[in-house]
Amino acid sequence: MPNKRLNLRDIVVISFISAVLGVLYLLWVLLGQMVTGIFGPVGGGLMAGFWILAPVVCAYIVQKPGAAMLAELIAAGTEVMAGSVSAGAVLVLGFTQGLAAEIIFALFFYRVFRLPVLMLAGMAGTFAAFLTQYVLYGFSQYAGSVVVFMLITMLISGALLAGWAGKSFTDALVKTGVLDRFALGRQYRLEQQRDTV
């Protein structure tokens, strides 16, 4: 049974990955704001999954408790340090999104990191984002149908942009060998050895 606590190397690697993603989050915000400004929050909902990439990618790599939460908080923190113009919303969202993804991984006792679980974590993340924005931006003032439609687009986005794209990206990253000292990399090497024998 490997040590399940985050060590310094885990934390620093999560920091670097999340910081890079945090910069991409920031660029995505500009894109998202343009889409939201033109198509309204419903169109913006389709963009939402991208902001759940850090917890999905980091939890999938490290496979330890706390990785998802830490990743999203650091990504949000990086956005703030880099000068996000929506620092407050970013920090609140970082907390709720990370927490939601973390809960999904905890429900599977940090043992199952297959595609359905990662997609579920992505959807939980966008669901948390939806709830947070519902409260922050007063969605209760809009027609129920619009709000439900927005939620559906966000859930789809969470499953695809965070869950599916996140896994596909990380699987490509494992092949480079840089993750060999993490849970995911070890599993990948073991599978390869089994295939060659």
Partner: peptide, 16 residues
């Protein structure tokens, strides 16, 4: 994206 992130992970391990 993959080489970019791989570089970041390598740098992170060295930093740690």
């Amino acid at each position: 994206a993959v080489p970019l992130m791989a570089g970041a992970v390598r740098k992170a391990e060295r930093t740690a």
